[in-house]
Design a protein around this nucleic acid. Structure first.
Lengths: 235, 235
DNA sequence: CCTAGAGAGTTGTTGAACAATCCGACAAGA
DNA sequence: TCTTGTCGGATTGTTCAACAACTCTCTAGG
């Protein structure tokens, strides 16, 4: 019986991993990808009639998908007007960073003054490596993805489902702000900083790491805001 | 023209304030009240057919209301099984406090070492006064409400919509954990601590305030967990 | 005691229909 | 010219009935 236990646990984990998705969730997944990849630019409207025809689902199901993405912050719902891809103003962008700073710095600070188990830092190391590799081959979108994963995994160190969920939502909103800007200028500078931050964390120098992260986020916000302004002035 | 500007701004704010609510939102409001007031105890199932008949709305609209409350954490949706009032395990309760600690302490810490404008602390003073008054007349539910408002207003000092929204969600989840426990034991101890915390903030001693708040939250979590255990053992 | 399977009941999804609302265009008046 | 009133098309909000897909329970059989 106990010989089967590990196998059964494995199966359970596998099942929960690929838990069946409702039609609305699958539709949401399709739209999510389109939005985050920029096929649907911020501000564009998503017509119910049109999309339900194209996606071969009823309007009711499509509306459920809209709600899901609305909760994730990717779409905004205006009563009697329809749903639109979220447009992040500079103020809202700053707000996203405000929350990131609160969460990420808190997570790092509370890791304690001792070096964490190297094993738990493994995902972070992989993300840094992925980012460096992507940068080496000029794949700036890949760098951006690795960067996102890095911060997700950083927060995951806290082991808090709610912090993970909030972070995931914030990063999704952030992706909206990336649309149309220069991918290299956007992501390139952070490959190195992620590595430096990871080193501090691995050394157990959490106070320094938290300070570095705070500066990191402030610089990143200012940088991103600048890029957006440039892009707006000469599109 | 500029003389009208302030008036126009006022109107715009007023309109956005009383934005009409859809049917789903009104239904959600009704259910939210029932859940937070304990009429629908945690774990109970909400039947679509039954509720749509009672509330005189279609199943589709009811489902939209369910989604709204699901996003607020009050209901959980299990595929092909239905929606249930959220049951907060001890681990999840601790997770709620984990996030509260990250947010609230960060907000206090970043107020800066200088005493804030007394005006912005006015809502907090009112909440403390409300709590004290409610305690004086033995209205422990009122004390709990004032306590919630205090923490909402505390976070509001940061001026971050996203922190406000997250806090609102956390406090809603917290209300679920209060169900059935002794209201006096639950809320009474915190009237005094809120006042002390506010004094530290008003004096600009933010570092001390943050430390006090951290201790506050740890004690509160331990206390609440104990009360829940007691209540479970002898209901 | 355990398992497989049938049946009942609930949820998931659809499509059509109608009501409510928004938006742009166009006309009337100052 | 500018503002205001009105109209009609287009889109969203909501309902309803039906069916498909699924879960849960109970029972017969091993």
């Amino acid at each position: 019986m106990s010989t089967q236990q590990s196998f059964l646990d494995e199966l359970a984990a596998e099942v929960s991993g690929l838990r069946r998705a409702s039609t609305a969730e699958r539709v949401a997944e399709i739209l999510r990808r389109r939005v985050t990849e920029g096929d649907l630019p911020p501000g564009s409207q998503l017509s119910e009639e049109q999309l339900s025809a194209v996606l071969q689902v009823s309007r009711n199901t499509l509306r459920e998908a809209f709600r899901l993405l609305g909760h994730e912050g990717l779409l905004v719902h205006r009563l009697h007007r329809g749903v639109f891809v979220t447009e992040l103003s500079d103020d809202e962008l700053a707000d996203v960073y405000r929350v990131r700073r609160a969460i990420e710095c808190d997570v790092v600070r509370r890791l304690g003054g001792t070096a964490p188990d190297p094993e738990v830092l493994e995902p972070l190391r992989a993300d840094v490596a992925d980012g460096a590799a992507a940068a080496a081959r000029g794949d700036w979108t890949g760098v951006g993805t690795a960067n996102m994963h890095f911060h997700s995994h950083l927060v995951a160190l806290a082991g808090s489902p709610r912090l993970d969920a909030t972070t995931s939502r914030l990063l999704a909103e952030l992706r909206l702000a990336f649309q149309g800007a220069d991918a290299e200028a956007m992501h390139a500078p952070y490959v190195e900083r992620n590595g430096a931050l990871l080193d501090l964390v691995a050394a157990g120098r959490t106070a320094e790491a938290a300070a570095a992260l705070e500066d990191y986020l402030d610089v990143s916000l200012a940088h991103l805001t600048d890029l957006r302004r440039d892009h707006e002035e000469q599109p």
